[in-house]
């Protein structure tokens, strides 16, 4: 066996006589590498912390005790005005629906774009195999541009409202889902596609009838996961740009004291919605991927 593993020459074989020393030597070397990596990592973290600390307006250690001050101020005021909360829920519900609509429409449009890009960029399925790198780069580019950039530029052109946010999120979703979709489609069984080719189906028919039914559960599951992410993104974009519940939150925060009951109402609405969507999509995804 040793001959098979290490060849006939004696010098290549491990010295079986001194296993213990060889093992200890190996362990020592491994530990040394691990130690060096750890030391580098710790040094990076520490220097990064010091640097971030230096460039921050407030100090970490003096800020730490203040951490609870703002939430407690907000909560105590909201508690004093707790009678307003149900009314505020009703007041802000339309903005919440707008945020959800932005996320849903963006996910739908982005998923459509991702389907097209993924089919065109997957080896074995692509309509124009030579253009695969082109479509891949398109996916990379739309994934790399952060949503906020597109949203802010579009707000300048299109004015406020939800549409810039939809376009921004949809573009990003298209790129991100496209990559995942294409990974799934790569593993699809090509036999149905060949069968359809043999009866003279067009490319569209081959994809629609041969590929989509195979990959639909996984694709849907990824799209749902993305919807979760997009709800958060749409809230954040509202805060930075315009539209939806994020914008209301910004207005209430800018007003400051006296409107903290609104802040709490929006926090709660957002929190409950996100938890609910998380739960629902977890359950649906489990059913989709594992088959009920």
């Amino acid at each position: 066996m040793v001959d098979i593993a290490f060849g006939p020459e004696k010098g290549q074989r491990p010295d079986l006589g001194d296993t213990r020393a060889a093992y200890l030597e190996m362990v020592r070397r491994k530990r040394m590498y691990g130690g060096i990596l750890l030391a580098v990592f710790v040094a990076m973290m520490a220097s990064g912390f010091i640097l971030a600390q230096e460039r921050n307006a407030g100090d970490f250690w003096s800020g730490l005790p203040m951490l609870g001050a703002f939430p407690s101020e907000v909560l105590s005021e909201a508690w004093a005005n707790r009678a307003n909360l149900p009314g505020l829920f009703v007041e802000f519900f339309p903005s919440l629906v707008e945020t959800l609509n932005i996320a849903a429409v963006a996910t739908l449009l982005g998923a459509l774009m991702a389907v097209m890009l993924a089919l065109l960029a997957t080896r074995g399925l692509a309509r124009w195999p030579r253009a695969i790198p082109l479509f891949r780069r398109m996916m990379d580019a739309s994934r790399a541009i952060p949503e906020i950039v597109v949203a802010l530029v579009l707000i300048y052109i299109l004015g406020g409202g939800p549409v810039p946010a939809v376009i921004a999120i949809a573009l990003h979703t298209g790129g991100a889902l496209g990559k995942l979709f294409s990974e799934v489609a790569e593993n699809a069984d090509l036999k149905p596609v060949e069968g359809l080719t043999s009866v003279g189906a067009t490319w569209g028919q081959r994809m629609w009838l041969g590929v989509i039914p195979q990959v639909a559960p996984n694709w849907l599951s990824y799209a749902l996961l993305r919807f979760e992410v997009n709800v958060r993104a749409s809230a954040i974009l509202g805060f930075v740009g315009e539209g939806g519940i994020g914008h209301d939150l910004k207005l209430a925060m800018q007003w400051g004291q006296g409107r903290y009951d609104q802040v709490v109402a929006i926090f709660l609405l957002l929190f409950l919605t996100i938890v609910l969507i998380d739960r629902l999509s977890d359950r649906v995804r489990l059913r989709l991927v594992k088959g009920i």
Partner: peptide, 21 residues
């Protein structure tokens, strides 16, 4: 996870002020 990054960010910037930290 439910509270969302946006809200954590707001709470933290009240305590620590603007900056990378």
């Amino acid at each position: 996870r439910g509270v969302d990054g946006l809200i954590w960010t707001i709470i933290l910037s009240r305590a620590f002020g603007p900056g990378p930290m």
